[in-house]
Amino acid sequence: MIVIVDYDTGNTRNVKKAMDYLQIQNTLSADPSAILHADGVVLPGVGAFKKAVDALNERQLVPVLKQVAQQQTPILGICLGMQLLFDRSFEFGETPGLGLIPGEVVAIPDNLGVKVPHMGWNQNQVTQTDPMTKDFDQQSTYFVHSFYVKTAAKYILAQADYQVKIPSIVRDRNVIGMQFHPEKSGRVGLSRLAAFKELVENGNYSRNRS
């Protein structure tokens, strides 16, 4: 069973709709025990970083998610959920994240002649072959965000160009993040969710990337 972490964030129900459509067994829950015993965990998220961390803390989920990562359960963070996987964010002051992948979350510069937020369909370049990036090179996905992740190249599987390089899929072993919205990116997005399901079922996540 895949558990979608239910902590009152915007895209949760759309992620569930997409998984239901793909007939992936899933449930919404904020129950620590359900999350710890899940075969796979999806962390959705839209909005502000600090508010999301506060919402996770209110539900005592920060240590739970850290333990989930440690016990090698596949985790998929989506949009803000991906940003939460990293060490810290500089959105409205510095806020610590889950620290599951080394890196930090910074603002997309607004002096590069591009509009912020980065909102719309952008094309991805695959930088590493991986089950999560199968048939993904040059495909467009739907992004909505004002901050982006800065992390080492070894964690970046795909990126999109927006004057800065925006990591669009990141991965460190069992911890995966997608900056775009797979639940709003049509066929290409749905196939990313299906790839995550495969990973959960086949346990193809112990690959040591570091």
Partner: peptide, 8 residues
């Protein structure tokens, strides 16, 4: 770069 959108 962002694609121009066509919206019905």
């Amino acid at each position: 770069m962002l694609a121009k959108r066509i919206i019905p």
